[in-house]
Amino acid sequence: MVAPVTGDEATLARLMRAAQTGDKRAYAALLEEVARWLRRYFRRRIAPERIDDLVQDVLVSLHTKRATYDPARAFFPWLAAIARYRWLDHLRADYRGRTSELHEDSAAEESDEDVVIARVSLDRLFEQLAPAQAEVIELVRIEGCSIAEASERTGQSQSLVKVNIHRGLKKLSALVEKAN
């Protein structure tokens, strides 16, 4: 039985290094902790019913690309880059018509890694967008509003909503590694 781990940078980096050597127990413990962290990370940035899918996609990507983690570097920035990449994939996927209330995740807990998380957070990524782009991406791609609803709520024409979503996603994909 693996002892419970804390999700701090040093512990996860150590587990990841062990995982790269083939240590299955360390790897399982790491993935458990990463899954929990990802749920917090994606909170309010993806429709609640899609969080599990997205977290599982990131875990599979982490597994497939685990050799790309450089043991000399920090773990969270690497994980966040992969998480952002997969998150954008999900944003691009068309799930218009879904209407979901974004929930307040009660499982979210503040940890000692708040500074790191803030630096790699999805909010920081959204701040790079023009307000009009961020607004319609949130409405259509995250909350699941239709183009018409987003148009009505923002005052943008329907074609402008589409253009802003397209341009916003394109810009986000170029900023995946951006920290500030």
Binding site: A19, Q20, T21, G22, K24, R25, Y27, A28, L31, E32, A35, R36, D52, V55, Q56, L59, V60, H63, R66, A67, T68, Y69, D70, P71, A72, A107
Partner: peptide, 26 residues
Amino acid sequence: MNTPDMRSLIDELAEDSAPVQPMRKG
């Protein structure tokens, strides 16, 4: 809290893990 589905995936991935050579910059 991770769901049973998530735990099952984690178990599979952990079982499938083999040593990998990190892609070092050098």
